[in-house]
């Protein structure tokens, strides 16, 4: 199973790297640019199909379909954003990435953040559009948009990173059950059995999930997604409750950070006037 995933991850990285390399705008002149782009697109589509095969199916068929749809759309738009010649197209593909990840947020039950991300990034993309129209379009199709900066080494390093990440994440599993072999394991099992009785009396235990049981004890009630009766808390109330109790300092620091960034942006865009070379200062 593990070797299957490793091979699949290596194939995805190799094909995706080849496709991305061919799709990137290159320095060399020639009429074969369009041909290389098409070949790269085919390799990238193959890599995407393999990537979809790497995703494990969920319990629900509809959820699986939607997840795969959003995931493939996000990754494909990301590739097209990186390789688009026109910065306006890049911004549009980025909008597509944000919409797809918003769908993935919804599937993970983070509906407030899905809406928030889409609203915030929609604003950001409009601002980017403004910048592109103000600055880039004045010169027409710029040379630097049609020539990538050292595409070979960059592609290799990025897809080696992708290969490492995919290979290590794809082999994740919780199945650590096995026979007790060493004395240490025996000792640990015995001590935990002796403590179970007190645990049952004091805490709410989760069936089949030691992790949820531990988290239930470790985190305060405001930080848990599920309320006392096991039902999910409402999104905004839950996030707000946690943000302004458990993460109060974080919220304050975020405000400070925003203020500092505001001041920084103003200072950067309005440079201080140069000291006047008149003799007024010396006269005083």
């Amino acid at each position: 199973m593990m070797t299957k995933y490793s091979i699949l991850a290596a194939l995805i990285a190799a094909l995706g790297g080849l496709g991305a390399y061919l799709m990137l705008p290159h320095k060399r002149k020639g009429t074969r640019a369009g041909l290389a782009y098409k070949a790269g697109a085919q390799a990238a589509v193959l890599a995407l199909v393999l990537f979809a095969a790497l995703l494990s199916p969920l319990a629900d068929f509809v959820a699986t379909t939607f997840f795969d749809l959003f995931a493939v759309a996000a990754v494909a738009s990301a590739l097209l954003m990186v390789t688009a010649r026109d910065p306006v197209h890049s911004a549009l593909w980025f909008a597509s990435v944000v919409l797809s990840t918003g769908g993935l947020f919804l599937l993970a039950g983070a509906s407030f953040l899905a809406a928030g991300t889409i609203i915030v990034y929609a604003g950001a993309i409009i601002v980017t559009f403004l910048f592109v129209i103000m600055l880039a379009q004045m010169e027409g199709r710029a040379v630097y948009d049609r020539a990538a900066h050292s595409p070979g080494p960059a592609t290799v390093s990025c897809f080696v990173l992708l290969w490492c990440l995919l290979a290590s994440i794809a082999t994740l599993s919780t199945d650590t059950s096995g026979p007790i072999e060493t004395r240490e394991q025996q000792f640990r099992a015995e001590t935990s059995f002796s403590r179970i009785e007190s645990l049952v009396e004091r805490f709410r235990l989760h069936k089949h999930s030691a992790m949820l049981t531990v988290i239930d004890q470790a985190s305060p009630a405001t930080n848990r997604i599920h309320g006392g009766e096991g039902a999910e808390k409402p999104q905004v109330a839950g996030i707000g409750g946690s943000l302004y109790t458990d993460h109060l300092i974080t919220a304050g620091l975020s405000g400070v950070l925003l203020f500092v960034a505001l001041v920084g942006a103003i200072v950067i865009t309005n440079p201080r006037p140069r000291p006047q070379a008149t003799g007024r200062g010396q006269a005083i």
């Binding site: 995931a71 688009a84 910065p87 890049s90 880039a136 900066h149 595409p151 960059a154 897809f159 995919l166």
Partner: peptide
């Protein structure tokens, strides 16, 4: 897995593209 793919592709864009906005 999806997050890893987005991260690597973003890194590729940052390293190769020359347009500041992209």
């Amino acid at each position: 897995l999806v997050g890893a793919a987005l991260f690597s592709l973003g890194m590729l864009g940052f390293l190769t593209r020359r347009n500041l906005i992209v």
